[in-house]
């Protein structure tokens, strides 16, 4: 009886923890690339499918940090997973930091922000935003968690991560200025 109950609990737990398994694969992929985690933020009791992890990018001369936000939308129950799958959005936010900011940056900021006002990160487009001494690029994609949560999916996770990473990086290269200060990260 106990075995039957625990088997059921284990199956249900495995389904519920699919988003954590994908986050584990993402952290490991970034770690193997030499990008350490520097901030964790997990969901509240009401929203347990939300995880945001910020990474430093010391090996990258352009980027300062990258944040990966996984937000699970469906698949919490067995029926839901069977019918519509385990869908989640992965939002990647890459940041370029310029260590000295001056008033001319404010002018550039308005120009870029005006150009980006209609760009939708959730539609697969890269959106740029200014934060005084940093410029942020965001892209969001919809994924199926069952295709990314196992060790056999490692290559797929890496391809997905580096694909978006390179796209964001490319969008940010023009905003990285030669700095008088070395990136402290």
């Amino acid at each position: 009886m106990l075995k039957m109950l625990t088997d059921f609990a284990a199956r249900s737990e495995a389904r519920e923890s699919r988003d954590e398994a994908v986050i584990g694969e993402i952290v490991a992929a970034m770690g193997r690339q030499g990008f350490p985690t520097i901030e964790f933020s997990t969901g509240t009791a009401a929203d347990t499918g939300f995880q945001a992890i910020k990474f430093a990018t010391p090996a990258d001369p352009v980027l300062h940090t990258v944040t990966v936000i996984l937000d699970r939308k469906t698949g919490g129950s067995a029926l839901q997973e069977k019918v519509i799958g385990s869908k989640a959005t992965i939002r990647m936010v890459a940041e370029v930091k310029n260590f000295v900011a001056d008033p001319d940056d404010l002018l550039a900021m308005w120009r870029t922000d005006a150009q980006n006002i209609l760009r939708m990160p959730m539609m697969g487009q890269v959106r740029l935003d200014h934060r005084l001494n940093s410029v942020i690029a965001t892209k969001q994609i919809l994924v199926e968690l069952t295709e990314l949560d196992g060790p056999e999916d490692r290559t797929r996770v890496e391809q997905l991560l580096w694909g978006v990473y390179n796209e964001l990086r490319e969008a940010l290269v023009p905003y990285k200025r030669q700095s008088i200060v070395e990136d402290p990260m």
């Binding site: 954590e20 584990g24 970034m30 770690g31 985690t37 520097i38 992890i53 990474f55 949560d149 060790p151």
Partner: peptide, 21 residues
């Protein structure tokens, strides 16, 4: 946070599955 990430990286790479965070 760095230590937590390094722990996750080591265990996941060694074949353990993250089930709670």
């Amino acid at each position: 946070d760095v230590a937590l990430g390094a722990t996750i990286t080591s265990y996941v790479t060694a074949g353990w599955r993250l089930v709670d965070l």
